[in-house]
Amino acid sequence: MSPSLDLAPVFGYLAALCTTVAFLPQALKAWRSRSVGDLSLATFLLFTCGVASWLMYGILTVDWPIIAANVITLALAGSILVMRVVFGRSGSRD
């Protein structure tokens, strides 16, 4: 009889990797261009709050894929949010 392979953590880390790395190109582009006026402030504010909540959930449930993904995603999305506020167009409303 072969040992059972638990694939849940594999898919958890794969999902964490994909969704986290997805923000890296946007963060790099925003940093290099200093152009973030077209990004919705409301969207990134809500998204960053959601990621922080997922991180807290991961910590409370000791779910390492969720913790790992959301620590990095919070840093990337948070940096985009900060750049949106700092580099954003003055007078922009959204």
Rank of each mutant, 00 (worst) to 15 (best):
M1W: 04
M1L: 13
M1G: 15
P3D: 11
S4P: 04
S4C: 05
S4W: 06
L5Y: 14
D6F: 13
L7H: 13
L7V: 10
A8H: 12
A8E: 14
A8F: 12
A8I: 10
V10D: 07
V10C: 10
F11L: 15
G12I: 12
L14F: 15
A15K: 07
A15N: 05
A16R: 01
A16P: 09
L17K: 00
L17Y: 01
L17G: 12
L17Q: 00
L17I: 10
C18D: 00
T19Y: 00
T19W: 00
T20R: 01
T20E: 00
T20N: 02
V21C: 07
V21P: 06
A22V: 02
F23C: 03
F23A: 05
L24H: 02
L24F: 13
L24V: 15
P25T: 04
P25E: 01
Q26R: 01
Q26T: 12
A27Y: 08
A27H: 04
A27T: 13
A30Y: 05
R32L: 07
S33W: 10
R34C: 04
S35W: 00
S35C: 05
S35R: 15
G37F: 07
G37Q: 07
G37A: 11
G37D: 11
G37I: 13
G37P: 09
D38I: 08
D38W: 11
D38E: 14
L39G: 04
L39C: 13
L39A: 09
L39M: 10
S40I: 08
S40T: 06
L41G: 08
A42L: 15
A42H: 09
F44P: 07
F44Y: 14
L45W: 09
L46C: 12
F47E: 10
F47V: 08
T48Q: 06
G50P: 09
V51W: 04
V51K: 01
A52V: 10
A52L: 14
S53P: 12
S53R: 00
S53M: 11
W54Y: 13
L55Q: 06
L55D: 09
M56F: 13
M56W: 11
Y57C: 09
I59P: 03
T61A: 01
T61R: 08
T61Q: 12
T61P: 06
T61M: 05
V62H: 09
P65V: 06
P65W: 03
I66F: 13
I67P: 13
I67K: 12
I67A: 11
I67H: 14
A68H: 03
A68P: 02
A69R: 00
V71N: 00
I72Q: 00
I72T: 12
T73V: 13
T73S: 15
T73H: 04
L74I: 11
A75S: 11
A75V: 10
A77T: 15
A77N: 10
A77S: 14
A77I: 10
G78V: 05
G78K: 06
G78H: 03
L81F: 01
L81W: 00
M83K: 05
M83G: 05
V85E: 02
V86T: 06
G88T: 05
R89M: 03
S90F: 07
S92F: 09
S92N: 13
S92K: 10
R93T: 13
